[in-house]
């Protein structure tokens, strides 16, 4: 109860200061954000778009972690955790793609331009989309859990490459690309102190929200499985 109110207040505060505080050329007051060349007023997307892609990585990682745990111990709870985490990762991945596309319309001129970053996130969507197709195709519980655990742990191998490496070594439009002279490494060099605090608070808030969604997700999945099993017996 207290935790949930804290989380609500945290995300509300992040939204208020993230959207409300002004961006100025030379920040003097504590509440002002610096102007980042190439991003300008659009820079406020950092507080909402980056946490979604951050959660994509976290959720897919947790999915892989519990997949491997399932393969070792064969406990169906681990499979439920891995599956719901992959679902959430997919949701956040789609959110990162859509928010990025809306932002790109105003920063780069079009919703989609096959920038390395956009291409790589598209590949990740396809790779993890196949996981759900695989799961829905298998009836037997054990078999489904084992196969999707194996697929999920192999699929995660591509994630660091597509999210952290490829968009950074290729030339592109997204901040942080190889030929990016304006925005550069954003977190350390272009944000000022208060911007970093809001950014990390936002990461924390979104991560806690993900944890809550995950908890509800896998519990309801287990309950559904139990009810279906007892119905089959009757």
């Amino acid at each position: 109860m207290v935790k949930k109110i804290f989380l609500y207040v945290l995300l509300a505060v992040v939204s208020i200061v993230g959207i409300g505080f002004p961006i100025v050329k030379n920040p003097v007051n504590w509440y002002e954000y610096p102007l980042i060349p190439g991003l300008e007023e659009n820079a406020k997307i950092i507080f909402f778009h980056v946490p979604t892609s951050w959660l994509t990585v976290i959720a897919f990682f947790m999915s892989t972690y519990f997949s491997i745990k399932y393969l070792r111990k064969k406990n169906i709870i681990d499979d439920a955790k891995a599956y719901t985490s992959a679902q959430l990762g997919m949701i956040f991945c789609i959110l990162a793609t859509v928010t990025g596309a809306v932002w790109a319309k105003f920063a780069w001129g079009s919703f989609w331009s096959w920038d390395p970053r956009q291409t790589s996130i598209f590949a990740i969507l396809l790779i993890y989309g196949a996981l759900f197709a695989l799961r829905s195709a298998i009836e037997d519980e054990q078999k489904r859990a084992t196969l999707s655990a194996v697929y999920s742990s192999i699929a995660f191998v591509t994630v660091p490459f597509f999210i952290f490496i490829m968009p950074r070594i290729m030339k592109g439009l997204h901040p942080g690309s190889a030929d990016d002279s304006t925005a550069g490494p954003l977190v350390n060099f272009k944000m000022n102190g208060n911007m970093q605090v809001v950014f990390y608070l936002s990461l924390l808030g979104f991560t806690l929200l993900y944890a809550w969604m995950w908890d509800i997700g896998y519990r309801s999945y287990l309950l559904k499985e139990k009810i279906e099993k007892s119905e089959k017996k009757d």
Binding site: S15, I16, I19, G20
Partner: peptide, 13 residues
């Protein structure tokens, strides 16, 4: 911008 902010807060609620 503050209208957007109010909408975001309603969405969170």
């Amino acid at each position: 911008l503050y209208i957007v902010l109010i909408i975001v807060l309603i969405v969170w609620t």
